[in-house]
Design a protein around this nucleic acid. Structure first.
Length: 289
DNA sequence: AGGTTGACCTGGACGC
DNA sequence: TGCGTCCAGGTCAACC
């Protein structure tokens, strides 16, 4: 499942391949659910734009776009006056991968995979393709001042103090709090379980009742596990594939996720499976108190 | 308003 | 074998 490290891996991979490219044509599938902005608006915004860079905000891939006058100069200087001249109109294309979404860069000759929902044709003949069998992914365009900031706090850079403050007075389970994107954005089921294991904390413990020491351990564990996963190129559970089609390999490092019933790698106890915040949760009853 | 639950999707795993 | 059922989970709307 694409969580923060996977999304970052994809964003970096796509950035390295398409930065500076101009989008000359856009095709969308017409499946309404996939498009958070109207398809016509997406097509209009992207067509003719230059890709300034591709990055990650939370679990969202953000493509910074520029529709400057220079890029189109000489092409068709129609009678759009003052507005266009100093427009340097900038916008952002947001790609949320959902569960099974992939953002691929391919030669146009390569056959379109099934479940392709958007194709951005680049000036050099390649295409950026959004493929998503399960259709939990979402595409949109925004023009917010200062750019898209995401719904919550960035976990990779949040300080220990700010991190602790996020959970003050919260009555929900710490696992549910970690998954709540308006608190922290980017953490999903895998890294929530992995960081709670490494911090030795029960997933069901009330977020507001964590001790100072526990919050400190969780902050450290979360940032370490995310950094490690980013380093390894993100997880590749089931259907995640990065921009090159190369699978990541962080799944080799999972200590609890999807290991229910198996022995804890630290103490040998049987790992337990429960449901927290509507999500399957695996933890070690001996190591996590 | 904070917290919880279920719907949205489809492919793959599993059971009989 | 093949069919049916269940499960996966990110996010949002609806509900408590």
């Amino acid at each position: 499942m694409p969580e923060l490290p996977e999304v970052e891996t994809v964003a970096n991979g796509v950035d390295a391949r398409v930065r500076g490219q101009k989008i000359v044509r856009v095709w969308t599938s017409g499946k309404p659910q996939t498009f958070k902005s109207p398809e016509t608006e997406i097509a209009e915004t992207l067509t003719g734009a230059r890709i300034e860079r591709v990055k990650r905000v939370g679990k969202t891939i953000v493509m910074d776009l520029k529709k400057g006058n220079r890029a189109t100069a000489g092409k068709k200087q129609v009678l759009r006056s003052a507005q266009d001249d100093n427009s340097n109109f900038s916008a952002q294309f947001l790609v949320h991968l959902g569960m099974t979404g992939r953002l691929l860069v391919s030669q146009a000759e390569v056959e379109l995979p099934p479940h392709t929902h958007a194709v951005l044709s680049l000036a050099d003949g390649r295409e950026v393709r959004f493929v998503d069998p399960r259709r939990f992914g979402r595409l949109s365009v925004v023009t917010a001042e200062g750019g898209y900031q995401g719904p919550g706090v960035e976990p990779t850079t949040v300080t220990a103090e700010e991190f602790a403050g996020l959970f003050k007075g919260r009555k929900l389970a710490i696992k549910a709090a970690l998954l709540n994107q308006s608190i922290l954005h980017g953490v999903g089921n895998i890294y929530a379980d992995e960081s709670l294991f490494r911090a030795g904390i029960r997933p069901r413990k009330q977020a507001g009742k964590l001790t100072r020491a526990e919050l400190g351990r969780l902050h450290t564990a979360l940032q370490q596990v995310l950094a490690h996963a980013i380093e390894l190129g993100g997880s590749s559970v089931s259907d995640y594939v990065d921009a090159d089609g190369v699978r990541g390999f962080f799944q080799l490092e999972h200590k609890v996720y999807s290991r229910a019933g198996e022995a804890c790698l630290d103490c040998g106890a049987g790992l337990k499976k429960i449901v927290v915040g509507g999500r399957t949760t695996v933890y070690c009853p001996a190591c996590q108190r």
